[in-house]
Structures are given as structure tokens and as C-alpha cells.
Simulated assay, not measured.
Amino acid sequence: MTPAPRLSIIIPTLDEAEVIDDVLQSLQDYTARGVELIVVDGGSSDDTVARATRLASRLIQSAPGRARQMNAGARISRGNLLLFLHADTRLPHCADRLVANALSGSHCWGRFDISLEGRHPLLPLIGFAMNWRSRLTGIATGDQALFMTRQAFDRAGGFPDQPLMEDIEMSRRLQGHSAPACLEQRASSSGRRWDEAGAWATIWLMWRLRFRYWRGESADSLAREYRHVR
């Protein structure tokens, strides 16, 4: 019998044909070491599925919604460690070993620091602020490649079935079990939303939505505004 992989990397996708080849190619060294690579597509209308099928360990279809897709991937995964990766994010070198080491002690979940790639000169400062905000609050964003033990995922009840802020809510749930392991090694994520919409406009939008979520406004209401602005 083939032994279960220690780490499963789960990537939710929706119309990511432009980037999916690159991210999956960057993970081939991991699959050679026994890491399971699962792509969960939410109904792409482009070439995402055909491209991902060639390089992923498994590809499944799911109802759209990042939280739903990540939960679907976790349900079929075989690893006892789970890492959730956005399609436009690249992991640091030897991330599988870094995650295993981080979760071998008192931490049951964590995230990487982040660096943002793009044209805007403010992106390094934005990445710096995201990393320090995460350290101070214990809240991680999906861009930072959240990882956790399967036990912690199950005890948290998985990602909440909501269309926005699922990473914030998941962080809150996981904080009840341990503080996050905040790894200094950096995941590299696309700064395309800041490049396309403008850095200050995007910062203002995200902070406004986060504040309203903290005040108790529903994720469904915030998601409607987010989609309208996008």
C-alpha cells in the first residue's frame, strides 16, 4: 500500500489559466518528495482545468467559492498536514519541510511572511505592513499560504462557508487552539489587484471592509460591495 503523503497542498482555482502552469511547475519538486497536490476548480470558463490536469496529483470540481473549494480539497486529501495556496502565490524554497518543522511543536497552524510582486512602488511597504499586522493580531490572510494540521482543520470545522473574509474567520477559529507559527520565509504573491485598481484605492477598500466585518457586518453584504468595486 502506498503511504499517505505527509503534506497536501490545496489550490482553489477559477479562471486561472494565465498563472496555473507556473504555480504547478514550481511545485513539482514537492510532488517528487511525496507531497500531494490538489487543484479544486470552481467552474472555470478558460483553460484552467486542462492545464492543471497535467501537473496536479488530483483535480476535482466544486461549487464556486474559495472556502467551499478549499474544504472540498481538504475532504479528499490524504495528508496529515494541509497547506492552502492561492493560484497566484509561490511558496519559498523547501516549504514542505518548513511547514513540518513549524507544526512539530506547540503550533497547530501558521503562515508565511509575504512579498508582493508587481509594478507599484508601494508593494514592498504593503507586504511589510501585512506581515507585521499578522504578527500583532495573530490573523493571517490567504495570500500568506495558511497551513495547519488536519486535526486543527477538523476541530475548527473547516473554512466557514462565506464568500469573503474566510481567511480571517478561519484564523480566529484556529487561535482557539494555538498561536500561529509566523514563518519569516516569504511566499511570493501577485500584486495585480494593487497594480490594476491602484494601491491607495485597494488599501482603503480592504481596510474599510475589514473594519466593517470586525463590527459585525455579514460577509455576504461585504462580498457584494467587493465584487461591485472590482
Rank of each mutant, 00 (worst) to 15 (best):
Q151N: 09
N131Y: 07
I168Y: 14
D47Y: 09
I203Q: 00
D15M: 14
N71H: 03
D143Y: 00
G65W: 03
A187M: 08
G118H: 02
P92T: 08
A129Y: 06
R68D: 02
G216N: 11
M148I: 01
E225F: 10
L85V: 05
A187N: 03
A56C: 05
A181R: 05
V229K: 09
L7I: 13
S45I: 15
A219H: 04
H107I: 13
R66P: 07
A197P: 08
D41V: 09
Q151T: 15
G79Q: 07
G118M: 05
S221N: 07
S8P: 04
R78A: 12
P92W: 05
A95F: 14
I76N: 08
E36A: 06
R75N: 06
A145E: 00
T89L: 08
R119C: 09
V35H: 00
N131P: 02
W204C: 09
T141W: 03
M206N: 13
S77W: 06
W200L: 15
F159D: 10
A87G: 07
A74C: 03
L55P: 07
R186V: 11
E36F: 05
I11V: 07
Q185Y: 06
V35F: 11
S26Q: 09
L125R: 15
G34K: 07
I60Q: 03
A197L: 15
L125C: 13
R172K: 15
L82D: 00
A102D: 06
D143C: 10
S189C: 10
F153K: 12
L205Q: 10
G79R: 01
A56V: 01
N131M: 07
G127M: 02
R33V: 02
P124C: 01
L98M: 04
R6G: 07
G158E: 07
G142V: 09
L14C: 00
G127D: 00
R66V: 11
S188Q: 11
D41C: 06
T141N: 11
A152Y: 11
L183T: 06
L83C: 13
Q151R: 14
G73H: 10
P163R: 08
I9R: 01
D154E: 15
R90A: 11
T202R: 03
R212M: 02
A4Q: 14
D21W: 09
I126C: 10
V99K: 10
